[in-house]
Design a protein around this nucleic acid. Sequence first.
DNA 1: GTTCAGCACTCGATAGAGTGGAGTGCCAGC
DNA 2: GCTGGCACTCCACTCTATCGAGTGCTGAAC
Lengths: 361, 361
Amino acid sequence: MAVKKKGETRAEDAPRRSSGDMPDLDGRKAAILNAIVTEYIGTAQPVGSQHIVDAPGVHVSSATVRSEMASLEREGYLTQPHTSAGRIPTDKGYRFFVDSLEGPGPLDPARRQQVRTFFDAAHGEIESMLEQTSGLLADLTDCAAMVVAPPHDAQGIRSVQLVGMSARTALVVVVLADGVVEKATLDLRDDTDDAVLAAAGSHVAAHVQGRTLTELPAELAPTGDRSADAVVADTLAILSQMSGGEARDQLFVGGSSRMAAAFDAVETVRSVLSILEQQLVVVSLLRDVLDRGLSVAIGTEHGYEPLASCALVVMPVSVDGEEAGTIGLLGPTRMNYPQALAAARVVGETLGQRLAESGRR
Amino acid sequence: MAVKKKGETRAEDAPRRSSGDMPDLDGRKAAILNAIVTEYIGTAQPVGSQHIVDAPGVHVSSATVRSEMASLEREGYLTQPHTSAGRIPTDKGYRFFVDSLEGPGPLDPARRQQVRTFFDAAHGEIESMLEQTSGLLADLTDCAAMVVAPPHDAQGIRSVQLVGMSARTALVVVVLADGVVEKATLDLRDDTDDAVLAAAGSHVAAHVQGRTLTELPAELAPTGDRSADAVVADTLAILSQMSGGEARDQLFVGGSSRMAAAFDAVETVRSVLSILEQQLVVVSLLRDVLDRGLSVAIGTEHGYEPLASCALVVMPVSVDGEEAGTIGLLGPTRMNYPQALAAARVVGETLGQRLAESGRR
DNA sequence: GTTCAGCACTCGATAGAGTGGAGTGCCAGC
DNA sequence: GCTGGCACTCCACTCTATCGAGTGCTGAAC
C-alpha cells in the first residue's frame, strides 16, 4: 500500500509554489515548457516545435524551439512518444507548469456564475448539498469530483437520544451542531425497558450537550439505577467511537462517468473507476496529499500506483478558519490545472461560507 | 422522457415466463436459438453454424443449422453484423432465451457460498449493509448492481424528536422501526425556545408512535400553548412528506466500474455511467420495470433510450411477505442472464430474511 | 555564441492490394 | 427433409507504398 500514513510529511519531495525551490529554467525554456503543457492539455496531441513559436515569451524560430525542447527532454520535463513526433509533458513537466501558476487564478465568468447560481439555489440537508456540490464540481471541470464532509470531531453535540429497537438493542441517535445526525446500534447487556433507556439517554444528554465528540467525559456520576448506569457507560463508549478515523468520514463522489473518456485504455478506466468506489481509499488518499502540503498531486506523486496516470487536485474547505472537509478533483495528468484549481478554490470558499452560515446559531 | 409513470402497466407488452404466450418456435429452432445466445454470451463473438451442431437439442448438420438460422433471422431473433459472418441475437432473441429459462435456476456452489459468507459476516447499520450488498451483487455477476432500500411508508415510527438548531430552525429526527433515522429541517414561524420545542416534540411523538408514516393523523389536539401548536402542525406536515415518492427512496449502486469493459464504444460507457449517477432515474426505471411485471428488461423494453444496449434484471426483496426494496442488475444485453437471475434471486431472498430478522422486535 | 534557414531523415498514420479463412446461401442427391 | 458439396462473400490481417509532421544537425548570419 503506497498511500502514506498521516503525518509522514516529507518536505524535500513536496514542491510548493514558493519561488525559492523552483528548479532553474531560464525564462524562455519555462515559456516553451508552459506553452507545450497548455497546448497539450487542450489538444491531447503531441506538440511540435512549430505550434508554439507564437506563444507568449517564446517568439524564436522553430529551430531554436527544437533545440530547447531537446534540452528540456534531456532534463526530464518532456518525452517523445517516438522519434519524429512532437513532445508530451512528463509528470515533472506538469509539476513545473503547476508550480509556475502564480496563485489559483480566477475562474471564468460563466463558471463563476454557475457556482453562484448553484449556491443561491442550494438548500436542504447538508448531505444532499455536498452530494450536489460534487456534481457541480464535475460539471465545472470535467473531472471526477470528491467532497469529504466535515469531520464530526469539532461539532458540538446538540442532542443525544436512546431509542429502544428490540429487547436487547437500542439506537443511539446524536444530533450535531451542523445538522448531521449520527446513529449507532447499542447492544444492551440486559433487557432494558424504555423508561430506563430514556432516563439513561437524558442523563448522558445533560452531561455532553454542547461538548464535542472529542471532549467527552470518561464516566458520569451514577444515576442511582444500576442498569441505567451500565447503559450510560456503553452509550459514552459509542459516542467516543463516533469521532475520528478516516473510516467515518463521509465521501461524495460525482461525475465519475467523465473518467470513461479520459483515458485510452479501457483497463485504466476500469481501475480508476473501481478506486473511486472505494470510499476509504479515496478519503485516505486525499488526507495524505493534504498532509503533505500539496494542492496538486501529479502521476505518482501521491505514491498510489493505480492512479499513476491521474492527477489529483485537493482543496481544504475552511469554515470560520477551521479546516472542515475537503474537495478533490481527479482527472488525467493532462487535466486543465488552472481551471481545476480555480474551480476548486471558488467552490471551496463558497461552500465554506455556506457551511459557516448554516452552522451559526 | 421514456421512463413510464408508476401504475401504467401494460399487460400486452409484458412478456411473462408462462408458457402460454411463448411465440411458437419448434423445438429445434428453439434449441438452436438458445445455443447461439449461450455461445454469444460466453464469447461475445458472432456464432457460426458449425459452432452449435453439437449443442443439446440440435445434432443436425451445419447446413441444416444454417437454414434454420436464416429462418430465425427472417423472424427477427438473430442478425448478422455482415454477410458471411455468424449470427448475433437480437433483443427479441434474448427475450425468447430468457423466457425459455424455466425458473431462475440454481446459483453455482462457489457463488452460493460467497453469499452465505457475506451475510454471515454482515453487521452494522442497514444502510451500510445494503451498500455492501450492491458490491456483493456486482462481484457475483460482473454487472453494475443497484439496491433500493425499503421504503419508509410501511415502517412504524419509533421516535420523533425536535432539536433546535438555530433561533428559527429545528431538526425533526424520526427513528423508524427498521433502524433508519430520517431527518428534515423545520423552519419555525417564530423564535421558539427549546422547552416549547421539546414539548411539541413529545406531543407529536406520543400521538404518532407505532403508526407508520402513511397513517398520520391530520391534526392533533391542542396542547394549550399556541406557539407549540404551530410547531406541532408543521412537524406533522414534515412527517407526512417523509413518506412516499421515488425521490425519497435510497439507492445504492455498486460495481459501476464494470461497465467500462462492457461496451466497445466509449460514449456508451460514459452515458451508461452517467445514468447510474442519477439516483432518481435509476429508481424510477427499476420501479417501472417491476410495475410492468417484468424481471428482465432487454434493450429498449424498458423504453429508456440511453440504455438501449443494456439489459436490466430486477428482483423485488420481500420482508415477511411484504415487498420491501428492490435489487437491480445492469449489464450489456449479452449479459449472463441465468447467472444474473440466480444471483439476484438468492441475494434478494437472503437479504429479505436478514431484514426480517433485524426488523423483528 | 546565439539564432535560424535549410536539409536529410525518421516514423507513425493512412490508404490500397492481396490473401486466408470463417462464414454464408444454394442445390442436387439420398 | 436432411446433408455434403460448392461457389461466393467479406472481414481481418498483412504487406507495401506514400505522405507529412516532426525531428536533429549544420553552416552561415548577426
